[in-house]
Design a protein around this nucleic acid. Structure first.
Lengths: 157, 157
DNA sequence: TGTGGGGCTTCCCACTATGGGAAGGTCAAC
DNA sequence: GTTGACCTTCCCATAGTGGGAAGCCCCACA
């Protein structure tokens, strides 16, 4: 089976299959006399595993671990579950972050007339780091690590 | 004011300030005799605007537009609001996507014993594209554009 | 048997946004 | 003058995916 057919069968693009192979995520497959890669059912199966893992948001590095667990007969479901729970927490944290930004912006938008005049609380809020009328959020600076202190300079004149 | 002080005052790292300047997001500032960049209050103000826009998840390209609207006395609040609403929709769509992945995985995790045995519905689900007992979600392949059809080949022998 | 076109190969570049680090110049305090 | 923090530019790295070029392979059809 050529790479194009493996791509269609697995849902992973040929481009990505080559990439996954190049970074060692999936093993190098045999070559035909022509030099074309030759895929068997097992290879396609594995690519499908990768594809579904990606669909659930796993990073390639984590999929590397998942593939290891998949092929390890002495794995425990506890290991798999722990990995999944870690990932779930990360997903939900990111989702919360995005939703919080949306909520802040939603509050500002509600206060914006959206007419022909230039006055706009959205622009005003971006301009100055002040509280926004969201009820409970009240700050713009989310999740950014504080910057390290710099030595004060006597900026002359 | 040197770049380090502008960075601390604005919350944008010196590295990023230089980068923003290099891509034309913020104008090139004057240089001191030493060749050091020299920042004034207006520059810091603008950098703060960029910082807060980033904190709300705006892309640099969209911040370019926002900066244009900010400095445009003939802007309308409708323009700003439209841009904000577009962004809100994108944020919430991404948040939903992440949350949906988390929910699917949560369902699989609930069905996983997490003990010393290898049997694991999480691995099983990644292995084969079958329905998962989540109640309403029931699919793994989310949001991926379908791949274009390829011509079937008579894979000889 | 020749040819056309689609698939395959490798290799490089692009994207987003940010940071690390090197090599070297500048400034201010002591 | 020395020292150390700060500045300069330039290159590289990240994560994941796609675009595209140059060139070879293969097969169907005329």
């Amino acid at each position: 089976m050529n790479i194009g057919q493996a791509a269609e069968a697995s849902g992973v693009s040929a481009k990505m299959i080559r990439h996954y192979e190049s970074i060692g995520l999936v093993p190098r497959v045999d070559r035909q006399d022509s030099g074309y890669r030759d895929y068997g059912p097992e290879d396609v199966h594995r690519l499908g595993f990768v594809r579904r893992s990606r669909d659930l948001g796993f990073s390639l590095e984590r999929i590397r671990v998942l593939l290891g667990l998949w092929g390890d007969p002495s794995r425990t479901s506890a290991e798999v579950k722990a990995l999944a729970l870690t990932h779930i927490n990360e997903l939900e944290e990111k989702a919360r972050h995005l939703q919080e930004m949306a909520t802040v912006l939603r509050g500002l938008s509600l206060a914006c007339d959206g007419d022909e005049r230039p006055d706009c609380p959205i622009i005003a809020s971006l301009e100055t780091a002040q509280k926004v009328p969201t009820g409970q959020v009240g700050h713009n600076s989310l999740l950014k690590a504080p910057m390290r202190k710099r030595r004060a300079r006597t900026t002359g004149a």
